[in-house]
Nucleic acid binder design. Sequence first.
DNA 1: GCCAGTTTCAATCAAAATCTGTCAAATAAA
DNA 2: TTTATTTGACAGATTTTGATTGAAACTGGC
Lengths: 250, 250
Amino acid sequence: MILDERRHNILQTIETQGFVSLQSLVELVGASESTIRRDLEYLDRIGQIRRTRGGASFTGDSLTGFDERRGQATAEKQAVARVAAGLIQPGEAVLLDGGTTTLEVARQLIGRALHVVTNSLPIVNLLANQPEIELIQIGGYLFPKTGVALGPLAVSALSQIHVRRLFMSVGGITEQGLFNTNTLLVETERQMMLSAEEVVVVTDSSKLGHSALAHLCPLQKVHQLVVDQGITDEWRKTLEDAGIKVLVAS
Amino acid sequence: MILDERRHNILQTIETQGFVSLQSLVELVGASESTIRRDLEYLDRIGQIRRTRGGASFTGDSLTGFDERRGQATAEKQAVARVAAGLIQPGEAVLLDGGTTTLEVARQLIGRALHVVTNSLPIVNLLANQPEIELIQIGGYLFPKTGVALGPLAVSALSQIHVRRLFMSVGGITEQGLFNTNTLLVETERQMMLSAEEVVVVTDSSKLGHSALAHLCPLQKVHQLVVDQGITDEWRKTLEDAGIKVLVAS
DNA sequence: GCCAGTTTCAATCAAAATCTGTCAAATAAA
DNA sequence: TTTATTTGACAGATTTTGATTGAAACTGGC
């Protein structure tokens, strides 16, 4: 086994298992501890993995692609995604924002006859060869790391689109409304909201009560919100008072 | 075993196995280490594989399945791509059409500080995480199989773009001009030509003399054409008479 | 808390593997 | 034939590897 192959194997093992011990890697690839340590150090240095005592874990920051980030898709996110996807009627046109939760929603759409519009490169890659799905890609400045298209081109393209539902992710939710991490993103998402009849926010409950850099919109602009069981009764009441229909995924 | 055959075998082994050690290649093809090394060096130089210590690995950037057609990226296409990429000045903004040859051009751009605009999903995937490259994605209806964004949204987005050079692929070239296989594609490419100061067609010589379903434009609209050595003197004269600067890749 | 025992880590070094460059022999082309 | 290209072999430089060592971190009992 050559150097590259070994490192590739190690990386793949870590990506699929989430965590591996140094000892198990020694057995797996048949090299010495020193060599594996050096490989882990290298992979850590280039940001592919995070070293921990006794082994290494996945960082969720793959160099080559954005997709296949199944590891980050927790059971909660998948549950939320299933409920959200259940809202969609056959033949409907939906708009999907970028984000790990919306990526899970997209995964649930495979095999259904739908029109999907998205500015997310991972979602495009996921759905690109699905014959039942008609895929419209929103272009723009491609934001590194996350792989979403943003900026004037995206806004302009979105203004020419009309869909039944938007599935949107957020960076944080407070009584003041929705937040996200980046102003370009917020600008694009505002246009998304204008292009959809109904705005559905998909999120996990950890976002509730946290804000972020850029304010997106007040709560009243949201029609539905799908969230995992972790939501408190208080928050549920706050959201419902703002006119949001809250769906809890179980 | 003759040179070409040996290199072909090596390439095939690497493509199917992903990684291969120098030693195993020595056994496989029955040549000396030196010879295999030289072959690997050559295949690396033309971008078919990546040489690594102890052997070589496949240029592993196939994510979505479109670029399985990479097998079609012949030495001619690579040579053409290298010449085409050589035209680009540092910091320039270039527009890349979809296609296997333009994908090879994109591959040549890795590591250079450029603005790249494209409607091709394979190219976006290839360049998405290259830190030096600022990537603008053109959205639209995502054409299945080839992974290019077309249609009104693409045309509209392109109309807002201005670049120095367009690298365009074609389905066929005759005295009547350029052709492509699909009317949606041709419509989008016409707008691309309007958005660029200079139109560079990249093609292999087999396209000369063949037409296709949809007429794109007359020869006079093209400024430069990069083609492999297979071009005849006749064709060269025809193209130059139409005002095209012909570059032959060797 | 503290300590002893165990595991893991970083640093170092010599051996092994691999690479580069060169050169002459073998082969193909002119 | 002569010339150019390809091939295999070899020497010296470079990189990688595995073993070893002492230091650091963790564990469980007190």
